[in-house]
Simulated assay, not measured.
Amino acid sequence: MLVLLPPSETKHPGGDGPPVDLSSLTAPELTPVRTELVEALVKLADDVPASRAALALSPKQDDEIERNAALWTSPTLPALQRYTGVLYDALDVRSLTRAQRARADRRLAVGSALFGVVGGADLVPAYRLSAGSTLPGQPTLRALWKPALSPVLAAVDGLVVDLRSGSYAALAPVPGAVTLQVLSERPDGTRSVVSHFNKAHKGRVARLLAASTAEPGDVVGLRRLLRRAGLHVEHDGGTALTLVVPTAEA
């Protein structure tokens, strides 16, 4: 089972790992595209106004440009510790047991605008690049990533659970992947899409899948696993699941 997570705009700073070795990351066949994008970001960092425009940054975020300038030399962290925010707070990998963390490193991967996809234990530097960014003189990120990344994800042996946000899923869709929509249900039975806390619920699902020793092979098995954990999950056919949470918990 492979669980694809979205990245976060913000990243934990620093780290104690060596500078990034692109060929050591998951799916080394992506190294040419990764190298092209890292080089482009490092070069772009020499032009602060252009960096701000391309990356949608304000002057108060110029430290993000400095991070990009140091991509080849800055320290690294495991991917599951580098990314921050609501989803990763809910995932809380630091509190997993050793066995659970080993499963998390094996099962969880992060979609990345810069690296395409990185495994949970892959050592990556802090950086700033979003799926919607367009770098000067470069094709769109979707045009760069789709031909290279799609075959990698399509070749995954086993169930793929795609929790990426729309813009990251668009970089390389995975045919047949299980997706998860989160809906809140009011006392009168009406429902609405969860927006703000959508990532938190997906982070909890990712944690559950990392912690479980079960290995579901299809969407039905995955639904069964989630329901055994006390989640209200509906399956109306196909590969889409719906997680329904009471409004008070949404």
Rank of each mutant, 00 (worst) to 15 (best):
D122F: 09
V124E: 07
R128N: 07
R128P: 03
R128H: 08
S130V: 08
T134A: 15
G137P: 11
G137F: 11
Q138F: 10
P139L: 03
L141K: 05
R142W: 09
R142M: 11
L144S: 13
K146D: 13
K146M: 11
L149M: 10
S150T: 15
V152G: 10
L153K: 05
L153V: 04
A155I: 10
V156G: 12
G158V: 01
G158K: 08
L159D: 00
L159G: 01
D162E: 07
R164V: 00
S165V: 11
S165K: 12
G166A: 14
S167G: 12
S167H: 13
A169F: 04
A169I: 05
A172G: 09
V174K: 00
V174A: 00
V174P: 00
P175G: 06
G176Q: 02
V178L: 04
V178S: 05
T179P: 01
E185D: 09
E185M: 12
G189T: 08
S192K: 14
F197I: 04
K199H: 09
A200M: 13
K202D: 08
R204A: 15
R207H: 10
R207W: 06
L209P: 04
A210N: 06
S212D: 12
A214M: 08
A214Y: 09
E215C: 13
G217S: 13
G217F: 05
R224A: 15
R227P: 10
R227N: 15
R227G: 14
R227F: 09
R228W: 11
H232K: 14
H232L: 15
D236N: 11
D236S: 15
D236P: 06
G237H: 01
